[in-house]
Structures are given as structure tokens and as C-alpha cells.
Amino acid sequence: MIFIADYGAGNLRSVHKAFEFLSIDAVVSDKASEMSRYEKVLIPGVGAYGPAMEAFNQHGFGDAIGEHIDKGRSVLGICLGMQLFLTESEEMGTNQGLDLVPGKVLHFPRGGDKIPQIGWNTINLCRKESVLFRGIPDESWFYFVHSYYCSPVDPASIAATTEYAGKKFCSAIEKNGIFAVQFHPEKSSEAGLLVLKNFAEF
């Protein structure tokens, strides 16, 4: 069973429907107190970093996700959900994140490609053994919508990279049960569904 955190900034319906399609049980809840009953948690997210982080903490998810990780359980962040895992973001000033993965969230360089990146792009896998990308070929296509990208401090936490606007950026993280993807797996056809399935079966 997957716990999908509803803090008012998530693409909840499409994520939940993706798990339904995969015949994987998932529940959407805005009650952080219920998280402790689940082995796996998914943090979706669309919108601005600062307000999303504020709402996340107001719902009590900040403390709950820390306890979840301390118990050795796994979590998957999607899009803005991935960005919240890092230390801070430069979106509309400096905003503090969850610091589950040390690093910063930065804006794409201006000039050149259109920002935000909206549409399909490929990923380059960074490791031979991957949980999220098991059975998924290198340079597979996924659907992105974002103006900011994650820059983790530790390169070993990067599971995949993508290039856009003249920048090679981290598009997936795998670190001690912490998983995250910048793209939307629920909108990325068969490859995206396999990412969700791999997480659920991990």
C-alpha cells in the first residue's frame, strides 16, 4: 500500500489513477498521523516551492517524513516533491527544504531553450544497478514540466541526468530509501508506469 501525501500542491488524481492501473493499492490522505502505518510514501507536487514547503509543514508532513526515513522506510518524490527533498531552493528568494538530500534547487540558465521545460526528454542512467529504472533502457523518454532543477551535493545520489537549456541536471535520485524524479512518471507512458511499479515493489 502506498501513502500519497495530500498537502494541497500535488497532481494527486493522475498519480492515484496510475497505481490503480497497475493494480497497486494506494491511498491519498492529508493526515500526517496516518503515514506511520505505511512502508512507502509518495510526495507529488506542482507549483511554487515556498508555498508548497509551507503547506507541507503546516500539514505536519515535514516531521512525519523525517520519522518515516529514520525507520528505514522508503519515499518517492515527484517533480516539486523531488525538489522539496533538497536543502534549499532559489525560487522567489531562498526557501528552506527538507534537507533529506543535501543540495540546492536552481533556475535553468536564461537564454536558449524555452523555460519552463514542458514536454518529453530523455534520461541518462548513472548506475548499473537502479531500483527505479530496473528494466528501463538508458535514454528512455519521460515527460517534464519545470523551470528549476535539483543540484545534489553528492554525485553518488544521482540516479539519472537529463540535458536542457544547455545544462545537464539531476533528473532522478536514489539514496538510502530516498527516491525522487523530476519528471512525471504518471504522464510518461509505459516507462513511467514501470518506475512507479519498481518503487512499489522495492
Rank of each mutant, 00 (worst) to 15 (best):
M82D: 02
D63E: 13
Y143D: 08
Y38I: 04
S29K: 06
M35L: 07
K31M: 11
G93F: 07
E88P: 12
L76F: 00
E54W: 02
E39D: 12
N121H: 12
G62W: 01
G111E: 07
H68I: 07
R73C: 04
V28W: 03
E54M: 11
I65L: 13
A32Q: 09
G66Q: 04
G93C: 12
K114C: 12
V101H: 06
H107I: 02
E34I: 05
E67F: 01
E139A: 05
L125F: 03
M35T: 03
G62C: 05
G77L: 04
V101M: 06
A48N: 13
T122R: 12
D63A: 10
I123A: 05
L132Q: 03
R134Q: 13
G45C: 09
G112A: 08
V131C: 08
P102R: 08
E34S: 08
I65K: 00
G103Q: 08
M53G: 11
G72D: 07
R127H: 14
I78Y: 01
G62M: 02
S89K: 10
G77K: 02
G97A: 10
F61S: 05
A52S: 13
C126T: 15
H107Y: 05
Y143K: 09
C79I: 14
L100D: 00
F56H: 00
A48W: 11
Q83K: 11
K40V: 04
P109F: 07
V46E: 08
I78S: 01
F142L: 10
E67T: 03
K114Q: 13
G119N: 12
V105W: 00
